[in-house]
Amino acid sequence: MEVIIDHKALECDITHSEIEFLSRKILDLNKQLIDSEKAKSRFLSLVANSLINPISVLLSMIPHLDPKNDVRSAKIYDTVYEQALVLDFRIQNLLAAAEIENGQVDISYALIDPTELVNEAIKSLKYAILEKNIQINIHNTIEQKVVSDPKKLYLIIRNLLDNGCFYGIKNGIIDVSIEEKESKLLVSVKNQGEGPKVEHKPQIFTRFAYGPEGYHGLGIGLSIVRDLCELMDGTIDYEADTSSVTFTMTLPLETNLSNSEAYGSNEFLFESFDDAIEL
């Protein structure tokens, strides 16, 4: 019996030292990988930050140039406005990616109406929607406002809708459902058209990884959606059949707004440290 125990201990020791050895090796390899990525990350952050101010000015000024009745100018105006909106969307995604990489993402909760966020996202994607003549139906079963991070939720919804518009068929329908289930906020975006196959799932949420459908945007939208959902303790997944694809995100619904913001969130967990160990 003693011999068996010794064998087990020995095996355990070998496994431990092997894992330590391999972990050190992974760490070394990872350092090289990180170094090569570092330059890219810095560039990403720099570009996003230097572009955000000019595009904000452009977007606020362009609506004042609306030529209204001049058909030729109206076409030019629409093209300029459309491209400015696309550019703004891509810069917002670059900024979000840079923030996530820097670990500077602060969650700030507020009372929001999810339908309003969806409508705002629709407004920013109006040209893509018009081009494909897509009809968007919103089904919101939540009557009251919810507590969540509006900026992040907006970016998630905007990316999901943009994805739906790009992969959705012409003259198709996009259904946006908003519901509450087991204290979680569920937002799903269903578009008609062939969806990405299940075997492509790991790629779909990976940045710069393109599926067989080809290139679209920067290839970081859905990776940002995944990271933002994870940061807020939520999830993102999709289901696809031959005629439609549905992306569904869940976020836990916060119930206490004041505790989350002004006084240091979740401090109730730390009401007493009287008998704590001090190190």
Partner: peptide
């Protein structure tokens, strides 16, 4: 988790 595996954003998780 200990290591970023090169997939996804270089998140501080």
């Amino acid at each position: 988790l200990p290591f970023w595996n090169g997939n996804g954003l270089q998140s501080p998780k």
